[in-house]
Design a protein around this nucleic acid. Structure first.
Lengths: 191, 191
DNA sequence: AATTCACATGAACAGACGTTCATCATTACA
DNA sequence: TGTAATGATGAACGTCTGTTCATGTGAATT
């Protein structure tokens, strides 16, 4: 079969590759199986991506950008820090549910040397975003006067854990509501 | 070189394998490099482990058991729920720092079909442990009357995130104190 | 109708992989 | 000293990998 639209073919490859990398990791996913899943030959892949590594990095970058845009857009219309935090957690969870295993794949294969700069940059951006929310909340007197940077780290950690939990325990997904409840109100009854 | 103690050789292999799997993942770590790092030949590995898969599963099981024992022992002498939660988080973090990347390796390679039963069992046990603490705290009137099961999930998620954060951002490790502060006291100033 | 061009193929290649096994070296015991 | 037994070797094997490339095909252009 040939003479398909070039755009469609690339889209097919991306979809197949994302699935394969997510399921089997970088080493475990073979170019042959990606090609097969994309409905084309091995050679065809190399018309669209220089090699396996480039294909992998392309996917990482695409997904991270996707998330960044969604998150930033959401905050353009939110002023309340509480709502912002709740919203950010919800966006993160939706994203995680959508991309499941691939998220973990990203943070592991090849001992982080792989696409490290891209990921580092992404995490820095996200931390800055949360930090802005926290600072605002503290300034407004809504949040307790914790150290903002440390709180931002904790929130990021919580979200990461949330995402990992979804991937590890997909049959036991927990509601974001409880998550936000705990960080906002705290476990203790009285201070 | 030969006629080493069998025990020492096995120990060398375990150490080398843990390092290799942690750095490069299951697919990325080769038997040749494990053998080399252990100071022996490839064939030698097969005197102690049936194959690569068995070696990998052995390591997973060993590390999880190690952690379970540490956690359980700690709680034998603690009655205060607050102290117990703080302690559990600290133990988890210490463990994570010690084994870094291997923890992530465990939750990913081969799409979870790998050693899944072992991990599932481990997580169930840990959740039960946390649940016990939370329930006690609520019964004693120390914790807010949240849904205990959901809170346990959130706590587990937080810890997982903490661990992942340590691995992703080793140069930016955050203090466990802030973590426990946030979950115990909450962000909001007034309810 | 002839030519060009984008898209696609899959056998072929070199290298790496996990695993096996005939062989060897050292120790323990007879 | 001779004989098992234990621990270790690494070349060899078959399989799979990522990548290349000579070849093919159908649509668009001339």
């Amino acid at each position: 079969m040939n003479r398909r639209s070039s755009l469609q073919s690339k889209e097919n490859i991306k979809k197949a590759a994302l699935e394969a990398f997510s399921k089997y990791g970088y080493g475990g996913a073979s170019m042959k199986m990606i090609a097969h899943e994309a409905g084309m030959s091995v050679g065809g892949l190399y018309l669209y991506f220089k090699n396996k590594e480039e294909l992998y990095l392309f996917l990482i970058k695409e997904k991270l950008d996707e998330f960044s845009k969604t998150a930033e857009n959401a905050f353009k219309i939110i002023n309340d820090p509480v709502e912002a935090i709740v919203r950010y957690i919800n966006i993160s969870i939706e994203y995680a549910k959508k991309h499941k295993e691939f998220i973990i794949t990203q943070s592991k294969e090849h001992g982080f040397t792989f696409g490290m700069e891209i990921k580092k940059k992404f995490f820095e951006e996200q931390k800055a975003l949360i930090l802005r929310i926290i600072k605002k909340g503290i300034e407004n007197g809504i949040f307790k006067p914790f150290e903002p940077v440390e709180v931002a780290k904790v929130i990021m950690g919580l979200i990461r854990g949330f995402i990992i939990s979804i991937v590890i325990n997909p049959e036991n997904i927990f509601d974001a509501k409880y998550c936000t409840d705990v960080i906002l109100k705290g476990l203790l009854k009285e201070n």
